[in-house]
Design a protein around this nucleic acid. Sequence first.
DNA 1: CCTATGGTTAAGCAATTCATTAATTAAGGA
DNA 2: TCCTTAATTAATGAATTGCTTAACCATAGG
Lengths: 112, 112
Amino acid sequence: MGGSQDELSAVFQALADPTRRAMLSRLRVGPATVGELAEPFAMSRPAISQHLGVLERAGLIERTATAQWRTCTLRTEPLDEASAWVEHHRGEWNERFDLLAEHLRTMKEDSP
Amino acid sequence: MGGSQDELSAVFQALADPTRRAMLSRLRVGPATVGELAEPFAMSRPAISQHLGVLERAGLIERTATAQWRTCTLRTEPLDEASAWVEHHRGEWNERFDLLAEHLRTMKEDSP
DNA sequence: CCTATGGTTAAGCAATTCATTAATTAAGGA
DNA sequence: TCCTTAATTAATGAATTGCTTAACCATAGG
């Protein structure tokens, strides 16, 4: 099996947890420190750190260090593969929708 | 706790395994018996049965019994929620794309 | 009834997941 | 230097996952 398969598994695995999904939702607004990400959750910091590790290993976030803070940034590329898989399995109508989506995506790539 | 009990988590968890994804891909072509689904995999029947249990609990398949065969059918509804989540987190351009998708979806619902 | 076929259930095991607390690293400020 | 803040690493433990083999259930057909 290719590494691409495992990548996709890692992404879906990362998304299979409400805490991690909430973290990604927060990061959609913009980058945040670990403390800011931890704030909504009644959970120890090491637990937060481990969740961020899962997200980072799946390629869904990036952690950059400035002083004693780690700023986390959302990375959406891995979601493209996940999206492609899901959309491809959503039935007959969606197959036609996929073609439109791909067309629009191509148009976007071709534009500045 | 290891298990997340909400529906969306169960769907992503079910998709986080290459064997289960391959099973769903096979079912996209049409219904299949457990034996037919098991055929591509070097894996015991109980293992197959357990994977199908995960898919069924996530709502992604339906198992109906006729004689001694269990026919499995793909159910795509749970993928809608997963798709919505993923699409919603795929960045700025995709937000605009979401609007288009929703518009098309509405048009589809309004048509016979 | 007996037996083969198609699947599931039960029990067990190694590996992983998700959480904890305690210790550690690293930077900033009095 | 000492102390606080920010976050990670280490060690631990309970629960879950993904697989196995052995036993079981249900149906079809001599």
